[in-house]
Simulated assay, not measured.
Amino acid sequence: MKSLMMKDFPTDERPRERLIQHGPQSLSNQELLAILLRTGTKSESVIQLANRLLAHFEGLMLLKDASIDEIISIKGIGYAKAVQIKTAVEIGRRIANLSYDDRFVIRSPEDGANFVMNDMRFLAQENFVCLYLSTKNQVLHKQTVFVGSLNASIVHPREVVRP
């Protein structure tokens, strides 16, 4: 049985055209990934390839941490497509970390948590991160001092003060 290729879809149902008409928020993760990948293989459409990729990594969460070698282990994904995926993930990470002030100011524990949340949200192990502040509570430097176990991080005070 022949699988449906992108050219077999009605024009107004193709992901790229739907993004143009209705915006990126109207697309599924599979459709967004299909646009990024651009082409499928001889035997499957780009939508099917994107679906297999997401199924293999159980969604975007594990895909964002996958290595190039893990991504190219998927049939139909070569180095160029793997690099495109890693590039898109990194651009998203950098956008999420943008700050509009010259220096982020920490006024409360919540501000500190918000400052490190994007980088630490999905870590598999406990990380002890220090934020070094100016006298005006502006973040001068952020440093991971210790990576601990699954649920604990034991740090000596000298490790915090040394940097």
Results as ranks from 00 to 15, higher is better:
Leu4Gln: 15
Phe9Gly: 01
Phe9Trp: 15
Pro10Ala: 08
Pro10Met: 08
Thr11Ala: 13
Asp12Glu: 11
Pro15Glu: 14
Pro15Phe: 07
Glu17Thr: 06
Leu19Arg: 15
Leu19Glu: 15
Leu19Lys: 15
Ile20Ala: 13
His22Asp: 15
Gly23Asp: 07
Pro24Cys: 01
Pro24Leu: 05
Gln25His: 11
Gln25Asp: 14
Leu27Cys: 09
Ser28Leu: 04
Asn29Lys: 06
Gln30Arg: 12
Glu31Trp: 09
Glu31Met: 08
Leu33Gln: 05
Ala34Arg: 09
Ala34Leu: 09
Ala34Ser: 11
Ile35Lys: 10
Leu37Met: 08
Leu37Gly: 01
Leu37Tyr: 03
Thr39Glu: 14
Gly40Cys: 01
Lys42Gln: 13
Ser43His: 03
Ser43Leu: 07
Val46Met: 02
Val46Phe: 03
Ile47Cys: 04
Ile47Trp: 05
Gln48Val: 10
Ala50Pro: 05
Ala50Asp: 07
Asn51Phe: 04
Asn51Thr: 11
Leu53Phe: 10
Leu53Glu: 07
Leu54Asp: 03
Leu54Ala: 04
Leu54Tyr: 14
His56Tyr: 15
Phe57Thr: 12
Glu58Val: 05
Met61Thr: 07
Leu62Gln: 15
Leu62Ile: 02
Leu63Met: 11
Lys64Ala: 10
Lys64Arg: 14
Asp65Tyr: 03
Ser67Phe: 07
Ser67Ile: 06
Ser67Leu: 05
Ser67Thr: 12
Glu70Gly: 07
Glu70Asn: 07
Ile71Glu: 00
Ile74Met: 09
Lys75Gln: 15
Gly76Glu: 06
Ile77Lys: 12
Tyr79Lys: 12
Ala80Asn: 10
Val83Gln: 08
Ile85Asn: 03
Lys86Leu: 10
Lys86Ser: 12
Lys86Gly: 00
Lys86Arg: 14
Ala88Ile: 02
Val89Trp: 00
Val89His: 03
Glu90Val: 00
Glu90Thr: 01
Ile91Met: 09
Arg93Ala: 04
Arg93Tyr: 07
Arg94Ser: 08
Ile95Met: 15
Ile95Asn: 10
Ala96Trp: 01
Leu98Glu: 13
Leu98His: 11
Asp102Ala: 05
Asp102Asn: 14
Asp102Tyr: 10
Arg103Ala: 09
Arg103Glu: 05
Phe104Gly: 00
Phe104Ala: 02
Val105Gln: 09
Val105Phe: 00
Ile106Ser: 00
Arg107Pro: 00
Arg107His: 06
Pro109Thr: 04
Pro109Tyr: 01
Glu110Ser: 03
Gly112Ser: 08
Met117Asn: 11
Met117His: 14
Met117Trp: 14
Asn118Glu: 14
Met120Gln: 13
Arg121Phe: 07
Leu123Val: 13
Leu123Thr: 08
Leu123Trp: 04
Gln125Cys: 06
Glu126Met: 12
Glu126Pro: 04
Asn127Thr: 03
Cys130Gly: 00
Tyr132Pro: 00
Leu133Cys: 05
Ser134Asp: 14
Lys136Arg: 09
Lys136Cys: 06
Asn137Ala: 05
Asn137Arg: 12
Gln138Asp: 11
Gln138His: 14
Val139Glu: 00
Val139Leu: 00
Leu140His: 11
Lys142Glu: 09
Thr144Arg: 07
Thr144Asn: 09
Val145Ile: 14
Phe146Leu: 08
Gly148Lys: 02
Gly148Arg: 02
Ser149Lys: 06
Ser149Gly: 04
Asn151Arg: 12
